[in-house]
Design a protein around this nucleic acid. Sequence first.
DNA 1: GTAGGGTTAG
Length: 468
Amino acid sequence: MRRMAKFDHLYGRLSTKLLNICIDSICKSQQIEKAESVLIDGIRLGLLPDVVTYNTLIAAYCGIFGVDAAFSVVHRMKEAGINPNTVTYNSLIAGATRHGLFSGALDLFEEMLRVGMHPDLWSYNSLMHCYFRLGEPEKAYDVFHNIMLGGLSPCRITYNTMINGLCKNGYADNAIMLFRNLKRLGFVPGITSYNILINGLFKSGRFNNARRMLDEALKSGCPPNVITYTIVLKGLFRARRFEEGIEIFWEMKSKGYTFDAFAYCTVIGIFVKTGRIREANDCMAEMLKNGIGLDLVSYNTLINLCCKEGKLELAYQLLDEIEKGGLKCDEFTHTILIDGLCKTGNIEGAYQLLEHTTMLGFDSKVALNSFIDGLCKAGHIDYAMMMFESMEHKDSFTYSSMVHNLCKARRYHCASELLLSCVRSHIKILKSAQRAVLDGLCYSGFARKAKKLESKIRIARLLQSNLA
DNA sequence: GTAGGGTTAG
């Protein structure tokens, strides 16, 4: 009998472990309901879920439904007599961070300390990340300093989080200095570290340094991955080095890189923006053929492509797919469609969608800009002016578009007033829009007014630069 | 727990 009891005990422990492995694997395939039913079955069979079982569920709830839903699991856990541990809090903090709730993550960290729990390296790494995302690099640095001084030994993620945070907060030079110092102290960077730095250098406009860093990665035995290529592609595109970017794309293909949704969307976006619709279509076909799971950004990218080709019907088919697939359209989706409708001359449709979008609570300045431009192009310039005047927040696009369209309608005096008020409001305007007004005034016999306007603009800009 | 500010307007 004693032997049986011993086996029972062993069986119980093993089974909880098996149950956890099973739930973890189901959660990883995002099937929370199935995981819950496996848990219920397990309990019916007499298995006792432990802290790992609940932590697994909490991590999954955080990822899929958000932190609030995860808290309901914490509640259930406590009811079952199991106390949350550091991993529970780390999961909740990670969940909050993933959903952009950085202040909420900080609150959780404080709560952790308040209830007497000891944060581990994961908690501190997350804390640093949150401070950086909140634009508080000094506080992040304090955490880093404390990790180094305290008994915790930092890991690669600690260093990468620090280097990335510095880059993202505009301290690319400090990031590189830290990187060099750490390397001297024995830190062996992986491709993630190099990607962080290459991206940081590209974004601060230092293309040659970025290229050199890429070479350094290769020489250090870190082959680039799909993320490296996407960074380089985007960086070159941002620098308007389109041909080099397209070359990188072909290089990726010839080396047999597997494209993911990020890479495909980047490339399709670039093709669309440079007017290479045929190539964009080939890419889309390949993306669909390769069975890439389409998320909302992918759908938005494809809908945009359809709109640019004037294939609105196809765009609406994709819209149906979004809703059938359980995804929710966002501001981008609506804006893309509103612009598509405007560009195909369906102003009435665009107006209806704009109203619907506003009713849904989206406040898209881009959509309004698009619509105003659409109105002008369809010949309703007075109505466009009315909307323009009623707009609370006008930006560079609003002014550039309106000024251009007024010039096209030969209403140079009105355009010159807008141009001047734009400059005086410290808003940038396209050089071509300014040129259109000045040329328009000259050619229509108002050369003196053009001269005066030019000097008024110069004075306004001079005053601004003095004040700055 | 770190890396692609993947998609929109002039």
